[in-house]
Write a protein that binds this DNA or RNA. Structure first.
Lengths: 333, 333
DNA sequence: CTGTTAGCGCATTCAT
DNA sequence: ATGAATGCGCTAACAG
């Protein structure tokens, strides 16, 4: 096996090149306090490092410190849309500002145990979008890896679990429709069982809002991402006296719009529809889709701050303000 | 700073628990060939490891072997849609099958040098979706990190660059429309400058197809993701005698459909439209959008195979078959 | 004040 | 089946 790889440049190489010891190299490169290095030596070391393209081995550094500056995010099995994409980007930026490196691992269908993944990375913390078993959490703790679960929005939040307002999304939808005078709402539940972890709190939020306003609970129906199938659900809702529906997300909402078209009906006159996420297609739909959007940058900032606290064994900061989520009204309601 | 973290379980702990040496532990746990360990000892070691929840330190292992089994993907700045999401998921699975761990880093707007990122991970290989500078490639080589660039689909592919058929996408669109008898095509170019790296080869492909069929070059126009703005472009195309357009992707195609609606026109009668990606909203659009789709699983398999070869310093395998990309015809053409 | 020596952290592997 | 060396960087203790 031809291994033509160049031998790594190590701190010893830099030391030799600069004519100093490895310790000195380390002190200079890390700006170690309480170690006064003359400017001249300093310069020689820095130049040597630059000349040799020196890159400290993260492995050695991690081994020594027992701690890497990497945050690993375990992505769920379900398809990540642009909203999650945006959240990840913002999270990456927010953590970079705090000196950490963010990476995400798309979960594999043929599920290897998540342990294999974090063991390969040795992150300072693991951020999951789905539940972690107690055994998994214990194993990570034992390895010095902090773990936290985000975006669940359970009512009863467990320790080390982040508060992210999923219920609020559903509540805003229902309140918006109720304020427009709709007395009886429907809920368009997603067909994909993998997203139940998001869908349930959202639907619960809509239900709670109705209860709070003295309206009957929303008529929940599963809506496939298919015009013909959605049409049947639309007829069902209309038979039940539903005049407006909250959809799990914009895609499901678009399916409802397609169903309406297939019935020869239109929104909002025959049935008002509101989605979640504000994807590009929502704006371009006919009619343009009302939706609920979340400020991903603010959410990312909160998650990043929490991660840093948890890594240091400190309590999580208070959740983000409720105002990061709001309704965007368009033609469909 | 309260550091209540539990000390890591190391191979020394397992050795003590099993009453053997660390070397023996290593041999047993790695199934090292040419080292006959009695079944009894073997069992003791495995049991001790299980009892203690032993997790070998990836950092130490990487340090020792000089090779990690992590592949780092540098995501581009532009928004990743569900197609890229699917690709990443498949890639993760394909690499897992080959014993590697895949992670992705969403690039931050406030770009820190990419060196900081791979240095923090020490991957075996870096997969980028955008160009890497010669200096960056050199630095990675020096650190023993293989690098490769994917999805560019430049005509002239540089060494270590993957072949992924972007031009083919544009070619299929144009050929589809030409086969339907459209003599003069338009090209709907995206508004977002960040996606130019994809958009250019696609448009080039459409242009090449037209040239090959003896048609005039497509009339290329930038189409904002906005109905009103798109309407102006639609009028422009019709004035130019264009009867069908290839769109950069489904979102741009949806914008064209919205533009048509705003003009009181419809597809395909007044203007045929075909997108790329087959997003959910394409199927649900009015009219349902024709599009070009790529078999992400096959593409991921090819990328994974290539990555493994490059890591071992071997030449890249031949590109994936052309048939991984195909037209899905719906009502818009 | 400047810079060095020595040993640690952990798993792997050669030679005994 | 084991002791000892190895890979690399960090840092306490120490010498010039």
């Amino acid at each position: 096996m031809a291994d033509d790889r160049v031998r790594r440049v190590t701190s010893a190489d830099v030391a030799r090149e600069a004519g100093v010891s490895r310790a000195t190299v380390s002190y200079v490169l890390n700006d170690t306090p309480h170690q006064s290095i003359p400017a001249e030596t300093r310069r020689r070391v820095l130049e040597a490092a630059a000349r040799l393209d020196y890159a400290p081995s993260a492995a050695a550094r991690t081994l020594r410190s027992g701690r890497s500056d990497v945050v690993l995010c375990l992505l769920p099995d379900w398809p990540v849309g642009p909203e999650v994409g945006a959240l990840l980007g913002n999270l990456s930026a927010a953590l970079a500002r705090r000196g950490m490196t963010f990476v995400a691992h798309p979960s594999t269908r043929e599920d290897r145990p998540i342990a294999e993944i974090w063991k390969a990375i040795t992150p300072a913390a693991v951020l999951a979008f789905e539940d972690l078993s107690a055994a998994e959490i214990a194993a990570m703790r034992a390895a010095g890896v902090a773990s936290l679960v985000a975006l669940l929005g359970r009512s009863r939040r467990r320790p080390g679990e982040l508060e992210v307002p999923q219920q609020r999304v559903g509540r805003l939808q229902a309140e918006h429709l109720a304020a427009l005078g709709h007395p009886r709402l429907g809920y368009a539940y997603p067909d994909d069982p993998r997203v139940a972890i998001f869908a349930e709190p959202r639907r619960d939020g809509a239900r709670a809002a109705c209860a709070g306003l003295g309206l009957p609970a929303p008529v929940s129906r599963t809506v496939p991402l298919d015009g013909a199938a959605a049409a049947a659900v639309v007829r069902d809702w209309r038979d039940a006296g539903v005049t407006a529906v909250c959809a799990y997300n914009d895609e499901v909402a678009l399916a409802v719009l397609a169903g309406l078209r297939a019935c020869g009906l239109t929104a909002p006159g025959d049935l008002a529809v509101i989605g979640v996420d504000d994807i590009v297609a929502a704006r371009l739909a006919d009619p343009a889709l009302s939706t609920v959007t979340t400020d991903q940058a603010a959410l990312a900032e909160y998650l990043a701050a929490t991660i840093v606290e948890v890594i240091h064994g400190r309590p999580a900061p208070p959740g983000p303000g409720e105002d990061i989520t709001r309704v965007v009204r368009r033609a469909s309601t």
